[in-house]
Write a protein that binds this DNA or RNA. Structure first.
Lengths: 211, 211
DNA sequence: ATATAAAGACCGACTGGTTGGTTTGTTCAC
DNA sequence: GTGAACAAACCAACCAGTCGGTCTTTATAT
């Protein structure tokens, strides 16, 4: 084991470097050197530097989209679904932080052919969230005066921004952060009745004992 | 009047191009051409392409920081202060959207000497928000179980993310968006008592008539 | 007021380093 | 022997930055 293929080594190295210096701050030569590969090996595995960037994007968005759809299927009320999606999404930051950073910092530089594919999945992800909010409002669990789009983008923004400040070895565990976000969201969008009902469920995690 | 200096023309053009194509997706030659300037004119006004990037960053962060400090001084309760800060911040998006996009997309590429200066002001801005939240908790207006940092970063993230989706000519006015954010935030952080009191103030804007 | 000098704004052809990508030839394993 | 990987030289395009020079404005001297 621990037998990483050349391709994996290249991706890992590129990810680390891109995260720190940005796509344009890293040359192919440097990726090649630091992953103990060769120019030939690089271009054997990737058509171009662009394709490598696309690959990184794709791995991440595909994973996140799947997780969201999974969460949607595994739960059956809007509140539970939303919590599960947010929770799984936040947890992704622990594993995929470099991917996420690259995803949100460098997508400008994707060639049109690539960015189109990525955007399709990204939109699909957004739609899952919008859908849950819409269903929550219809079911009377979420406040009816909310705008689906703004509320959805508020949640997405709040969660996504984590990539700018989350430190894997920082004072906050990713679970604590997720719990705060969920608490924040539920207080905002649940109706008064729904709050009563939800107060003792697994997702209403933020109690006085946490700082 | 309408006499724009060369420097202004260069900045405006650069801003437009950077927003769309990213810092590294735009050459000095292109900036020069599209602003009807020359290479010499460019380097007469800026020491380097880097300095231009720094300038754009600085204008924005300085403005935002001032607005936040202003808002802090003009109001006197934590709730009012927080609302005023968020409101002024969101409104900035209308005027400074290109600046903001460049600020959050391209700051990786600032040379260390520049990014240090920028980060100082950015931290100062964060501290204003943290301070207000801290005071809100102490005053009993905000829920005591909240983490100052996570709550602060949630708010900042929610608001900042706007730059990814806000369209100046879109269906939502910037005021509507600001009202939603404030509604979202207040529902989350106010204590029950504070909510009763605040319900009729100027900031609790989101009522049933808005979709 | 006029001539002259100095300063600053601006121009654009040119340069030199960088970098993504190619090519050629080789090694090694299955 | 076929394909995965390496090594190294090479190329063409690109692009930030330079430099010598012009034109305009301002300051100075007579």
């Amino acid at each position: 084991m621990a037998e990483k293929t050349l391709k994996e080594r290249i991706i890992d190295t590129a990810l680390r470097l891109f995260e720190q210096y940005g796509y344009h701050g890293v040359t192919v030569d440097r990726i090649v050197t630091e992953s103990n590969a060769s120019k030939g090996g690089f271009y054997h595995n990737f058509k171009s530097k662009d394709e490598l960037l696309y690959h990184i994007h794709d791995v991440f968005i595909t994973y996140v989209l799947n997780k969201a759809q999974e969460a949607y299927q595994n739960y059956h009320t809007p509140t539970e679904r939303l919590c599960a999606i947010v929770q799984s999404f936040v947890k992704v930051f622990h594993l995929y932080k470099p991917h996420i950073t690259v995803f949100y910092q460098e997508s400008t530089y994707l060639k049109p052919e690539y960015s189109q594919k990525i955007n399709e999945k990204r939109d699909e992800f957004k739609q899952v969230i919008f859908q849950v909010i819409r269903e929550g409002i219809e079911a009377g669990e979420f406040r009816s005066e909310l705008s689906v789009e703004i509320t959805g983008m508020s949640i997405i923004g709040m969660v996504n921004w984590t990539y700018k400040w989350y430190k894997p070895n920082g004072p906050m565990t990713i679970e604590q952060i997720a719990a705060h976000f969920i608490d924040f969201i539920l207080h905002s969008i649940l109706t008064e009745e729904a709050k009563q009902k939800a107060e003792n469920t697994m997702f209403f995690l933020l109690n006085k004992q946490m700082v």
